[in-house]
Computed example of a mutant assay.
Amino acid sequence: MNSIALLNDSFRRTFSGGKVMMTIGVAELPDCVKAEALRQVADFSGFTEENDPHGEHDFGSFDLVGRKFFWKIDLYEEPDVKDANGDPVVNRVLTIMLASEY
């Protein structure tokens, strides 16, 4: 498994090391549904060649309360901010959305 997939998996499972965002459609759902959606994202393991062609573990989908949800991890490089090794800092943003909002 490549390093991007490992870092994405770590972030997705712990929600540490990036930002987690929800679209308005998800944010308006009851708290218990949002909590279950987060658990579904953290527990996701259904990566296939079809939904993960680059092997980065950056997208998934699941069904919950009769709705299809998508989640996506995007990487944003901060070219003007360097880490201790002098490399640009990369920020991870995980967005959870209803498929109907895509």
Rank of each mutant, 00 (worst) to 15 (best):
M1I: 09
I4N: 02
A5K: 12
L6M: 12
L6N: 10
L6V: 10
L7V: 11
L7P: 00
N8F: 03
S10I: 02
F11Y: 08
F11P: 00
R12D: 01
R13C: 04
T14L: 03
F15R: 05
F15V: 01
S16Q: 15
S16G: 05
G17W: 08
G18K: 08
G18T: 06
G18P: 07
M22Q: 13
M22W: 08
M22R: 10
T23W: 02
G25V: 12
G25R: 08
G25T: 10
G25A: 11
V26G: 09
V26P: 06
A27N: 13
A27W: 08
L29A: 12
L29I: 07
C32F: 12
C32R: 11
K34S: 05
K34L: 11
E36M: 12
E36Y: 01
A37E: 06
A37T: 06
L38A: 10
Q40N: 14
V41Q: 05
V41G: 08
V41H: 09
A42V: 00
A42W: 02
D43A: 15
S45K: 12
S45G: 15
S45A: 13
G46V: 11
F47H: 02
T48K: 04
T48V: 03
T48L: 04
E49R: 13
E50Y: 08
N51K: 06
D52E: 03
D52V: 00
G55T: 07
H57A: 13
H57L: 00
D58W: 00
F59K: 04
F59M: 04
G60N: 04
G60A: 03
G60D: 01
S61L: 07
S61M: 11
D63V: 14
L64Q: 08
V65T: 11
V65Q: 12
V65G: 00
R67N: 14
K68P: 00
K68W: 02
F69S: 06
W71F: 15
K72N: 11
K72C: 06
K72V: 05
K72L: 10
D74Q: 13
D74I: 14
L75P: 00
L75Y: 01
E78D: 14
P79V: 09
K82H: 04
K82L: 15
K82C: 03
D83P: 05
A84F: 13
A84P: 00
G86H: 05
G86Q: 07
D87Q: 14
P88S: 13
V89N: 05
N91E: 11
R92E: 08
R92N: 08
V93E: 11
V93Y: 12
L94A: 07
L94T: 07
I96K: 08
I96H: 08
E101Q: 15
